[in-house]
Every structure is written in structure tokens, then in C-alpha cells.
Computed example of a mutant assay.
Amino acid sequence: MRQIQHVVKAIIRPGESNTSENFKLPIGFTTGVAVYTNGVEKTANVMTTIEMKDDNSIAIVPAVHIDNWRQMSAGEYEKSFKPLNFDTGNKDYSLIFALEEPLSGVVPLKFHVVFLYNNTIKKV
């Protein structure tokens, strides 16, 4: 098994309160996820949530505060990620990013969501 990363990027622009990104995870077994931002949510003083759904609109992770998605301090890199543990199954997924009110100011809120997954790689 080889550990691989897949990144999904998103932006909430000033005046907007949400955005979503549709994506396909490469075939494999997803072990964890972590979110990184440009920090705008810390000064916006509004609740920021992220939700993940599969292609049947079933919530894999219900809408929860962004801190629930953040990488934690842990001894090992993979263990510091939010655990997911599911087979990607070649499905489409969506991430829904939301603020409780429109983003003020002039700087957009940028997200990088990093998925860790394992995939069997055959050597040629």
C-alpha cells in the first residue's frame, strides 16, 4: 500500500456565504482528511462549517465546524488527520463550505482540503 494525497480547493468570496466543490477521489481507501485555510475565518467572527456528501447525497461527514476538520498535533502525520476510513469506490463526492452569514471585507476565504488514501501500486 502506498499513501497518496488528493487536494480539493475552494473559495468563498466577499459577499458570499457558501460554495461547494464536486470531485472524484482516486480509487483507494481513504484514511483521513484535514483542512487548511488562509485564516480569514478567524477574523470573520462567523461560524464556518464543512460537509461532505457522496454521489447519492448521503452525508459522509455532516455539516460540522471547520475546527473538526483541522489537523491535530499528534506523533504521526496520518494520525493527526480527521479519520474517515472508507473505500472511495470510484464515486463522485461534494464538499459544502458554509458561513452563517455573508463574508465581509475584501479578502476571500480559501480552503485546501487534503485527503489521505492508500492505493495498491503494482510495479511494472
Rank of each mutant, 00 (worst) to 15 (best):
T120W: 13
W69V: 07
M47D: 12
I12F: 08
T49L: 14
E21R: 12
K42A: 10
V35Y: 00
Y117I: 00
N38D: 15
S57V: 01
Q3H: 09
K9F: 10
L116M: 09
V8E: 14
Y36E: 15
N22I: 05
K123Q: 14
T120L: 15
K9R: 10
M52T: 01
N22Q: 14
V107D: 14
D55K: 04
Q3P: 03
G28N: 05
N18V: 00
N90E: 13
P83E: 09
P83G: 07
S20W: 00
V46E: 13
T120D: 15
G105E: 13
I4K: 13
A10H: 06
Y36M: 12
N38Y: 07
Y117L: 06
G75P: 01
D92R: 07
K42M: 08
E76V: 01
N90C: 05
A44P: 01
N38E: 11
V107N: 08
V106N: 15
V107C: 07
F115M: 03
M72W: 02
M1E: 10
L84C: 03
P62Q: 12
E51P: 00
I58C: 08
M47H: 02
E51N: 06
G28E: 05
Q5A: 10
N90G: 14
K24L: 08
E21V: 12
H112C: 12
E76K: 03
I50V: 11
F115G: 03
T19E: 15
D55W: 12
N45R: 04
V33Y: 03
Y77V: 05
I4P: 00
A59G: 03
K91G: 13
R2Q: 15
V61Y: 06
Y36D: 13
I12D: 12
I66A: 07
A98F: 01
V61C: 11
N118H: 12
I12P: 04
S57P: 00
G32A: 09
V35N: 00
W69K: 05
E100G: 09
Q3Y: 14
K9P: 00
N118V: 02
E51F: 04
S20F: 02
H112Y: 10
Q3W: 11
L103P: 04
E16P: 01
I12C: 14
D55P: 00
K122F: 10
G105F: 07
F115Y: 11
V33W: 04
L99I: 04
N118M: 09
I121F: 11
F86K: 02
V7L: 15
S20A: 06
I58S: 10
S20H: 01
E101M: 12
G28C: 06
F86R: 03
I121M: 11
T43M: 13
P83K: 06
T19S: 14
T49Y: 07
T49A: 07
P108F: 11
I121L: 13
V35C: 04
K110L: 14
P108Q: 15
S104W: 02
G32M: 02
